[in-house]
Design a protein around this nucleic acid. Structure first.
Lengths: 227, 227
DNA sequence: CGTACCTTTGACATTTCTCAAGTCCCGTGG
DNA sequence: CCACGGGACTTGAGAAATGTCAAAGGTACG
C-alpha cells in the first residue's frame, strides 16, 4: 500500500502531530494514557468495519496506528464521512445506547477500545480525566462546526484546499503530504463527487498551487495553501 | 412580530418539547435546573448579539424564551448557522478560552447565563451534573453529524423538508407550524440561498406537501413530511 | 503479463446561484 | 381609515458550478 506504512508505524515517530499516538508510558495526555491503560488492542483490515450505526455503543476508541473514517449513510447509499481519525484521536462518543454513525478502517489500523461505562465511571472519580473527556468532546464540536461551514458555504476549490491544508497540518506542514484515503472518501467527506475532487486537484496543479506526485501524494508547492 | 409571542411566552406552556423551558422549580432536568439556579437572567432584542466569535467564552447559556442562532462567518461575509436554539436548549460549550462561533437572537429572547468555570467546578463535584453535561454535548455532536449529512449530501428539497420536519417535531407535530426565523436564516442554516429556499417552499406547496399560511407559518398538509 | 480497481478526462445534464424585478405585508403617519 | 414606505419574500431569466454517464489511463498485485 503506497505510503501506508506512515500510518502503521507505531514504534517510530508518527508523522502526525495528533500527539502521543502509541506511547504506552505516561505522557501528559490523560485521556490517551487512560485509554491505553484501561483498553484492549484490536486490529482491522482496510475497509473493515469497526462498528456500525445502530450497534450498541459499548466502547470508546482510540486510534493507535492507521486511519479510521466515521460515516453516516442514507437509505439510498449516499454517504457522508464526518471525520477521519488519525493516531492519537479518540472517537466513539455517543449520548445513547447505540451508535449513530459507523466507523471503518481507511487503512489497516490498530485501535485500543475501552468500555464506555468503565471510562465514564473513571471520569466520575477522576476530575482530570473527566475534564480531558470534556475537552475532547468540545474540540470535536468545534471541528464539526468548522466542517459545516465548509459543507454549507465553500466552493469545491475551497473545500479541497481546506482538506489538503488540514492534511498538511497533521503532517507537520511537510512539503510533500500523504493522502491515505481514496478520492471517494475525500468526496464523501467534502460533500462533492469523486469527479469534482479529481478535476479540482488537477486544476490546483495547473494553477501551480500543488503538484501531484501520484494520486496519493501531493507536494504543496512554493505557493502555500491559502485558507 | 407575527407569532413571535409563541417564543416569548415564559409563563404559559411552551409549544416546544425542548423541555422545562422556564420552570424555576426542580423538574428532573439536572442541567437545566442547575443553570436556572446558578445563573443570572439576561434579555436580548431581535438580532442582538449574545456573544461574538473570538470573545472570551466565560459563560454557558440556556434559552428561557425566544430563539437563538449560533453562526460562523467567513471573511467575505458568508455565514453558516450551526443551530437554532429553543427554550430549554443549553449552548456555548467551548474547549478553549474563546468562542469559536457567535450567537444572536432570532427573536427577542431571554436566557440564563452561568459562569463556565463555576459550572465545570460544580460538574466535578456532582457526578449527575457532569453526566448531564456530557449527554448534552454528545447529543449536540449527534445533531451536528446529522446536519453534516444534510449539508453534504441532500438536495434542496430534502433540506427544506428536513428543516420543516424538525420544526414540526419541536412543536409537538402540530398541524400548523410556526417559523420564527427569516428565509435568510433558513438558507444560511441549510447551505442554500434565500431564493432557493423560497422556490423550494413554493414547490412543496404546489405538490401539496405543505400549505403556506403566510411566510412564517406552514400547514403540514394531510400528506406528512417524509424523512 | 493480466486483471481489477482507482483515477482522470470528456461531453453533457441538472441543480443551484446570481441578478433583477416585482409583490406582499405591516407598521407609520396623514 | 387610508396612503406610504420599507423590509421580507417571491418570481423570472440566464449563468455558473457541480453532478452524471461513459470511456480511457494508471498502478498494484497476483
Amino acid at each position: 500500500m503506497l505510503n501506508s506504512h506512515l500510518y502503521e508505524a507505531a514504534d517510530g515517530v508518527s508523522p502526525y502531530v495528533a500527539g502521543n499516538a502509541a506511547a504506552p508510558e505516561m505522557s501528559g495526555d490523560v485521556l490517551g494514557d487512560t485509554l491505553a491503560m484501561m483498553g484492549s488492542a484490536m486490529s482491522f483490515e482496510r475497509n473493515e468495519e469497526l462498528f456500525a450505526e445502530e450497534e450498541p455503543a459499548d466502547y470508546v476508541y482510540k486510534v493507535v496506528s492507521g486511519v479510521v473514517r466515521t460515516c453516516k449513510f442514507l437509505e439510498d447509499g449516499r454517504r457522508q464521512i464526518g471525520e477521519f481519525h488519525f493516531p492519537g484521536d479518540v472517537f466513539g462518543f455517543e449520548p445513547c445506547a447505540n451508535h449513530t454513525f459507523s466507523a471503518e478502517a481507511v487503512t489497516p489500523c490498530r485501535v485500543v477500545i475501552v468500555k464506555r461505562a468503565a471510562l465514564m465511571a473513571a471520569a466520575g472519580r477522576d476530575a482530570e480525566l473527566g475534564s480531558a473527556l470534556w475537552i475532547a468532546a468540545t474540540r470535536e464540536l468545534g471541528r464539526l462546526h468548522e466542517h459545516m461551514v465548509l459543507l454549507g458555504r465553500k466552493s469545491a476549490r475551497e473545500r479541497v484546499m481546506a482538506f489538503l491544508a488540514s492534511a498538511a497540518e497533521r503532517q507537520c506542514d511537510a512539503a510533500v503530504i500523504d493522502i491515505p484515503m481514496s478520492r471517494q472518501d475525500i468526496a464523501d467527506h467534502l460533500g462533492l463527487t469523486i469527479e469534482t475532487v479529481s478535476r479540482t486537484m488537477t486544476q490546483l496543479q495547473e494553477t501551480g498551487a500543488i503538484s501531484l506526485e501520484g494520486s496519493r501524494r501531493v507536494r504543496v508547492g512554493p505557493v502555500r495553501l491559502a485558507a
